[in-house]
């Protein structure tokens, strides 16, 4: 027999625990599925991998993003309900049997309940936003439901002595409400800046290419601001324009900064031109005027009312786990 039931074990295993173990096994199977089949790829990648019909069924079932399917969330809800029942049973046992390990078991399960509730709060009410804040400019966030706008005053990179390896990078910012200054502060990797329930995280940095595109021959002008290496919809909407700095000014400060623009037209034509800041070039039927290459700081702004509960729940569970298996407190069976 694969599972040997011990003769010494005469206790009745509760139905709620059995059901919870079944749910955990189903969650384990789903997590394993996501661990073996890469998630979040493009639909084409799955069609390529599994073939046309199986691939479509795969996508229809949402198996390309299994952790966000309703079925997976339902398993989470089911686990919560079963955990609630198991915890209730343990609390009832604790009333007539005040053993340390039993208290630990209760604490462990209460902690997991707090964790699950807080995770739901986080998923439901939490929100985050990624921005590329240009140095010296203000990014208006109040229209996006955040309590402030943000201005990047300065961005600093610290290198290891004698090398080009980045040791740390930091943004000095001012939080504003209209013209009023709310707070000045700095943030770096591993050290976010908090303000009234919103946390700002240092995520990345790079260069923004700013300038104008003039349609030829009618002269219609549009301004652009694109991330170095990024893509921009071209003048007629179907074209795509990419701009790449030839030599990264961080690594090659002595080189004249130049940008290579590549135009991919809807017909498949490819054209390129190299432009310096302050100059222009004609590429296809558009004239690109490169204004400035400006530093940006990649920031994430996050409001998460569930995060404190998540870590409180996890901490309670760890303490409970320690007490549950602490080598004191007599025979440990429920």
């Amino acid at each position: 027999m694969f599972l040997n039931l011990s003769n010494e074990t005469t206790r009745e295993a509760g139905g709620a625990v059995r059901a919870a173990i079944l749910t955990i096994s189903l969650i384990l199977a789903a997590v394993l599925f996501g661990g073996l089949i890469p998630q979040g790829l493009t639909p084409e990648a799955y069609l390529d991998r599994f073939g046309e019909s199986p691939g479509r069924i795969f996508l229809l079932l949402g198996l390309d993003d299994i952790y966000r399917t309703k079925g997976f969330l339902l398993l989470g809800v089911l686990l919560f309900v079963q955990l609630l029942a198991c915890t209730g049973k343990r609390i009832a046992l604790l009333r007539g049997n005040s053993k340390l390990w039993l208290a630990g078991s209760v604490l462990l399960h209460v902690g997991l309940l707090v964790f699950l509730i807080s995770t739901a709060v986080s998923l439901w009410w939490g929100k985050s936003l990624m921005i590329e804040a240009p140095e010296g400019k203000t990014v208006v966030l109040s229209q996006k439901g955040l309590p402030f706008d943000i201005r990047l005053e300065r961005f600093l990179i610290d290198y290891y002595p004698g090398s080009q390896s980045v040791r740390q990078y930091r943004s000095e910012v001012t939080l504003l409400q209209g013209e009023r200054e709310l707070r000045r502060g700095s943030l770096e990797v591993n050290s976010p800046l908090g303000y009234e329930g919103t946390k700002i995280f240092q995520m990345s940095y790079g260069w923004l290419l700013e300038g104008t595109i003039r349609q030829l021959p009618d002269g219609k002008v549009q301004t652009f601001s694109m991330v170095n290496g990024g893509w921009l919809a071209g003048g007629n909407g179907a074209d795509r324009l990419r701009g790449v700095i030839m030599a990264d000014p961080d690594k090659h400060p002595n080189y004249k900064p130049e940008v290579a623009f590549l135009l991919l037209s809807a017909t498949g034509d490819r054209q390129a031109a190299v432009v310096s800041p302050g100059s222009s070039a004609v590429i296809g039927n558009q004239e690109i005027q490169l204004g400035q290459i400006r530093r940006y700081s990649g920031l994430q702004l996050k409001q998460d009312p569930g995060i404190a509960g998540i870590f409180a729940g996890l901490s309670l569970s760890l303490i409970g786990l320690m007490l549950r298996y602490a080598p004191v407190g007599g025979k440990k069976s429920i």
Partner: peptide, 18 residues
């Protein structure tokens, strides 16, 4: 989760042996 199932199986359902 594999070890979680093991610990519950052992303490609640008396799994032993192989």
């Amino acid at each position: 989760m594999i070890y979680l199932v093991y610990l519950h199986g052992r303490s609640r359902f008396g799994w032993r042996g192989q």
